[in-house]
Design a binder for these strands. Structure first.
Lengths: 157, 157
DNA sequence: GTATCTGCAAATTTTTTGCCAGTAG
DNA sequence: CTACTGGCAAAAAATTTGCAGATAC
């Protein structure tokens, strides 16, 4: 998070926006910075509150618009984590999301599915042209772990 | 979908509700039937419109309450597929969901992740106590498939 | 100079809640 | 009986939209 990093990210943002026919604005830059650095999968409201310290006059509508712009450029991802509002993620490394069934917190789990697994999915999917995936793990975070010591059994759907 | 099947499902519903301290009602039964048989991942509104033909006086609020009851008993799942409203799924066999980036349609993909993959996830997840997962595939359905013939590259997050 | 963007307020959409009468167990 | 439910209407929460002035390029 050195200044040179910040400058680089800014250039990436500038270029990506341009490539997608959008303009660079302070508001978008501030939203991008916050989302890219956040580790907490902020909601639009969270982003609003955070960015407002940097760009005091910004409005919630602009946050929504900026986030949609970033998502459409692939600079951020919209997560659907089943708690009222959408959450956003600006991390670029491949990772999954683990949601605690008790406290609702979401943490990142680094890694991606193996090539074999992806190949299997692709063949299972038949005529569907697979482009990407999003894996949400459910369970209990270390703070909320249930007393029962049991380490087996995770099931799809 | 023979009558004996229906009767069996009804018994399962009755028992499961009871086990979870809830009562069996016609409204819940109708919601359950519709969700269990539907292949289209209906929204609450969809369920409302469908069930209303069977239980004309039912209200949307009751649909929401019934769906939540079913989800809390594990008889249905709430999906977060990034289109305005939540969708529900009553299928019991393990499967994933494939969402088309063009038309927004969601289809089921049978199967589940391999044991090795799950074990790997569990270890990557560190202190997180893994209970289940939900895998959403993104891409293009056979109707919307892009012209470019390319079969490689699906990425996490 | 002009098309795009922001901020504001109002509108929409989705989901939740309080309350009372009705019903399952 | 009594606690749990359903229906209704109102409320809350989340997101989108229209528009006029401001701004990037």
């Amino acid at each position: 998070m050195k200044s040179s990093d910040a400058k680089l990210n800014d250039l990436v943002l500038r270029r990506t926006l341009q490539e997608n026919g959008h303009r660079y604005t302070d508001q978008r830059a501030a939203v991008f910075r916050l989302v890219a650095h956040s580790r907490v999968h902020p909601t639009a409201e969270d982003v609003f509150l955070g960015v407002r310290t940097e760009v005091p006059g910004i409005s919630l509508a602009t946050i929504y618009k900026s986030l949609e712009t970033l998502v459409s450029c692939g600079l951020a991802k919209k997560l659907n984590l089943d708690d009222g509002s959408a959450r956003f993620c600006g991390r670029t490394e491949p990772h999954h999301h683990a949601r605690c069934l008790t406290c609702g917190g979401v943490s990142d789990v680094p890694g991606e599915l193996g090539d074999l697994e992806v190949a299997a999915l692709r063949s299972q999917a038949g005529g569907f042209h697979l482009v990407g995936y999003e894996l949400e793990l459910t369970g209990y975070c270390s703070d909320c772990a249930p007393a029962t010591g049991n380490g087996a059994g995770a099931s799809a759907n």
